Computed example of a mutant assay.
Amino acid sequence: MEYADLEVQLKVKGETRSSDRALITNCSTYSGGYHQGLETTLVYNCFCTVELSLERLTETVQATILSVRVDEQGPWPFEYGGRIMCSSPPHEVKDPLSKQVVLVDSHSFEGGEMPMGTAGYIDLSWRVVSVKLEDSLQFVIQAYSQSGAIARQSSVTFRTKYCNVSRGICKIGDSVVEITIAWSHIVKHKREIHLEGHV
């Protein structure tokens, strides 16, 4: 129920960190309002414009994606890269207005390879999303073809929980991808932290 302070900083990377150049740096406050659905706000200057899509959610839980792991006994499904995203409630991927959160997209990385750690674990760019307590969270996994088009796609849906851990399996082609999520309660008001002494 509190206001949220948003900080936006968009940079052009230089050869070294000290040579990075800020295109836009801005702070703003989001009150959330009381209307339903997405709200769009613009942050801009003479160099560029950043469009943010925001939505106030009530009675939410936090989904922390602990891991996305490809079973090493099967083939690697991302030979030409891929994308993993989630949405709640589940939406069709083709819907341009769907509230998709992209967790990782190999097109964002130099060389177009899916970033991965050891033992088949995929390094995600984004790991936390907020979900309405009574909704579900759908993960969509896409594998690209050599041309960059979507060659294969699969999905798995989780029902939200107030707390605890969920595991799900998603099959994409002959490969098996395991997703592990930790659910946690989101504090609605700062007073709850003071009353309970913790989050």
Rank of each mutant, 00 (worst) to 15 (best):
E59T: 08
T60W: 06
T60K: 06
Q62S: 13
A63S: 01
T64D: 15
I65E: 01
I65V: 15
I65Y: 02
V68H: 01
R69P: 01
R69I: 08
V70S: 03
D71F: 09
D71P: 02
E72A: 09
E72S: 13
Q73G: 11
Q73M: 07
G74R: 05
G74H: 05
G74V: 00
P75V: 10
P75F: 07
W76C: 07
Y80V: 08
G81I: 04
I84S: 02
S87T: 10
S87C: 15
S88V: 11
P90V: 14
E92P: 02
E92D: 14
D95V: 03
P96L: 10
P96H: 04
P96C: 05
L97W: 06
L97H: 12
S98L: 00
K99M: 04
K99Q: 11
Q100D: 07
Q100G: 09
V104G: 06
V104K: 00
S106L: 11
S108E: 07
S108G: 06
F109C: 08
G111H: 02
E113I: 07
M114I: 07
P115R: 06
P115I: 11
P115V: 13
A119P: 00
G120E: 00
Y121E: 15
I122M: 09
D123R: 15
D123G: 11
D123I: 12
L124V: 07
S125D: 15
S125H: 10
W126D: 02
R127F: 10
S130T: 08
S130C: 13
K132D: 01
K132Y: 09
L133V: 11
E134F: 13
D135R: 10
S136M: 10
